[in-house]
């Protein structure tokens, strides 16, 4: 059965390629291309059901609808993987932002403490001037 030789590598490739897709112009273009191709293939398979069936016959799948299901499954695996990578990159960005906010706020608070300490006439101020 040809389909087995096609589907197994396709699933593996979908997982690996999607997890390695970057949130770059290239990755975005690839995602859009796949989405577009899926739509075109969908329309064609509606207009010419015979094509799908003959493709199924060639690859050793009983019905054309089954073939469609397999292809859709691979496409979904790819899209889920690449969306998760994008999500992770987004999360990393948000992390850096939150970290800078936290460090900035802490620094402002620490500076305020230092000013307070130097203004106080207590021995605390002597200590901070000495260092």
């Amino acid at each position: 059965m040809i389909i087995q030789f096609l589907l197994v590598p396709a699933v593996v490739l979908a997982v690996v390629l999607s997890l390695r897709s970057r949130n770059s112009v290239r990755g975005q273009a690839r995602r859009k291309l796949i989405a577009g191709l899926t739509v075109v293939a969908g329309v064609l398979s509606v207009l010419f059901p015979g094509v799908l069936q003959s493709l199924a016959d060639w690859s050793g799948v009983t019905r054309g609808t089954d073939l469609l299901l397999y292809v859709l499954a691979v496409v979904i695996i790819y899209l889920v993987g690449s969306v998760s990578v994008r999500f992770r990159e987004q999360e990393a960005r948000m992390t850096r932002l939150a970290r800078q906010v936290a460090l900035g706020e802490a620094e402002a608070r620490l500076r305020a403490d230092v000013v307070e300490a130097t203004v106080l006439p207590a021995d605390l101020s002597k200590d901070s001037r000495a260092s």
Partner: peptide, 14 residues
Amino acid sequence: AVRVTHPINLGQGG
């Protein structure tokens, strides 16, 4: 202690 406060929860690694 010196306190640094995350505005949102980032998990232990963060």
